[in-house]
Simulated assay, not measured.
Amino acid sequence: MAKGERKRALRGRAGRMKGGRGSGRASSGQVRLWGRHPVEAALMNPARSHSKLWATREGIESLDGELPENFPVEYAEVTDLARMVARDAPHQGLVLECAPLEDVHLDEAIAGSDGPLVILDQVTDPHNVGAILRSAAAFGAAALVTQDRHAPPESGVLAKSASGALETVPWVRVVNLARTMDEMADAGYWRIGLDGEAEANLASALPVGRVALVLGAEGEGMRQNIAAHCDALARLPIGNAIESLNVSNAAAIALYAVATREASQ
C-alpha cells in the first residue's frame, strides 16, 4: 500500500476521540510514547506490542511507512492529546500506547556486535538517558547497560529525548552492575571509567578492541566500587572555563572518540 493510500485507509477506519478522554496516564503495564520520531520508531519495531494510536490528521500525515493491518487508530484533537502526555510535551499530534520492551541480556546484546558498551552508574534523569541512547545509536554502540533499580523506566519523556533510539539500541538492565562488568571483562571488553580527576585523557586510555565506557551520575560521579571495576580511568580534555560536562554530552564525546579510533585503525 502506498503512503497516500495508507493515509486514506486510516481515515476510513479511524474513530473519533471525544473531548476530555485523555487521563495523562497509560493503562496499567503500558508505556505511552509521543512525538513523530519515537512513535514512528515504535510502530516500526517488531519487538513492540502496540495497544492504540491517538493522532491528529496532521500527525498521521507526518508518518512514513505503513501501519499494521487493522491497527487501532483514533483521531483526536490537539487539546485532547495534550491531556494524555507530560505537561507541555511536544506530542506533534501522535500518542502511542504500547507494552514495554522485553528484557535484553548482555550476551544477546553483544552477540554479533563489536560496538562499544555504555554503562551508566545511577544516572536517573530520563532526558539524559534518552540523549545517551540517541548518541549510542549514532555511533553504533552495542548496548546501554544500567542497574535496574537506579535508572529511569521507559517513558514518553525518555523516548522523546532518544528520538527513536529507544527502539534500536539494546538496553540491558541488571541487578548487580559490578558483577556485570566482570562479565564484560570475560567477554574481552576494556572498561574505561570517565572521571574528571583522572590523570590520563581518554585518547591515551583507549585500547585496540572492545571498549565499555562507564559514566557516573552528575555531581556524584561513579561509585567507588564501580570505579574499582574499571580497567582504567580517563578524563575528557576540557578547558578550565567549566568544571564538567553534562553526562549526556560526555557520553557523546566519548563515543565519538571510540568511533574515530576505530576509523583510524
Rank of each mutant, 00 (worst) to 15 (best):
A141F: 03
E183D: 13
K160C: 09
A141Y: 02
V175L: 12
P170D: 02
V214R: 05
E154L: 11
R149I: 15
L158I: 06
L177W: 03
D148C: 10
R223A: 09
A162C: 09
G221M: 15
K160R: 13
A151D: 08
L133Y: 10
A159Q: 05
V211N: 06
E199D: 12
I132N: 08
A131P: 07
H150C: 12
V211Y: 05
E154G: 07
V208Y: 07
Q147W: 15
E218P: 09
Y189L: 01
P170R: 12
V145G: 05
E154S: 06
V169Q: 05
S155R: 14
P152G: 07
R210Q: 04
S204L: 14
L133F: 02
A212H: 03
W171I: 12
L202Q: 14
R134N: 06
D195E: 15
R149D: 15
V172C: 11
Q122E: 15
A143G: 02
R179M: 09
A142W: 01
A141L: 08
R149H: 12
T124Y: 11
A131F: 07
V172F: 08
G164E: 01
L194V: 10
L194S: 06
D125Y: 11
P153D: 15
M181N: 06
G140T: 06
G130W: 03
G164W: 00
Y189P: 07
